[in-house]
Write a protein that binds this DNA or RNA. Structure first.
Lengths: 151, 151
DNA sequence: CACAATTCAATTGTGCGCAATATAAGTTTG
DNA sequence: CAAACTTATATTGCGCACAATTGAATTGTG
């Protein structure tokens, strides 16, 4: 058996994904600052704008997050008057999250934020150039890693 | 101008990348637990195994992290005797990170960890099936978003 | 050379992200 | 129907991640 060599970090697909995630967060930051939302908070609103009145569990399954992350996040939004939390009347284990008027109104100010929507607007926005480069690089790496498997 | 609609979270490429990053962390977790390393700590070692004796700044540029993240992370590794931190003699602003023998020895135990190496081993490991599905889905979404731009 | 500007790392504070645990509500079973 | 089990959320503790600030070392400039 040949002497093993460790891949460099730039050859690791996991790192490419990790770094692209950071790049997205940086890209969205100035836009989200205008709404005073963090990126995970924005994801919560994307879910709520699509379907209001969801349980913590449903939210967690949608976002792949657990209650240890969601509960304090939602409480911060509640403290700002953007959502309400109330126990379900029929099953008091569940907590249902609902948008307030302020939370609904935020939607109108968020239309200009999404970048790189699948089958949607693409990457046509201002300042998307660097992000596009990043995504092209990620696709190339993804292809390289997935095709290595196919052989 | 038509009435605007907000994309669903599943149509957002940023979320696909974000979720895939989480999936990678979960995938690596049991393997890294065996070395008692977190994923970001593992990334630091990948850099150090490739090039020992690097400054905090160089490490940060490689990993896209700042000193607020790296300094405490390195201090934890130092407390465990895996690395040393020493001011550069010629430029005392810089702190150079070096592997100890224990840190170097960890490398031998880490060969089996990497998954999805670009132009490398592919996705052939045990338990990689779910990860492969995840990555194929990400590629499809990446293609859809990038081609929307090309039109 | 003095002093302003820059660079590097560390610190502080806030917000994820998750494992482990706790608690209460609901469900199943003998 | 009571005990065992399961489910849903909350809490605690630890480790990132990053903005803002600080402090020390170095560099640039008149």
């Amino acid at each position: 058996m040949a002497h093993q060599t460790m891949p460099t970090i730039d050859q690791m697909l996991c790192f490419a994904v990790y770094a692209t995630g950071h790049a997205f967060t940086r890209f969205y930051k100035p836009r989200l600052d205008a709404l005073d939302l963090t990126y995970p908070q924005y994801l919560v609103f994307l879910v709520l704008w699509e379907q209001d009145d969801v349980t913590v569990k449903a939210l967690g399954e949608r976002l792949f997050l657990d209650s240890g992350t969601i509960t304090p996040l939602i409480k911060r939004l509640e403290a700002r008057g953007l959502v309400t939390r109330r126990r379900d009347e029929d099953d008091e284990r569940q907590v249902r999250i609902r948008l307030t008027k302020e939370g609904r109104d935020l939607k109108a100010r968020a239309f200009s934020i999404p970048l790189a929507v699948i089958e949607g607007t693409g990457l046509t926005q201002d300042g998307a150039g660097a992000m596009r480069e990043e995504l092209l690089a990620l696709r190339a790496r993804l292809d390289a890693a997935l095709s290595a498997q196919d052989k």
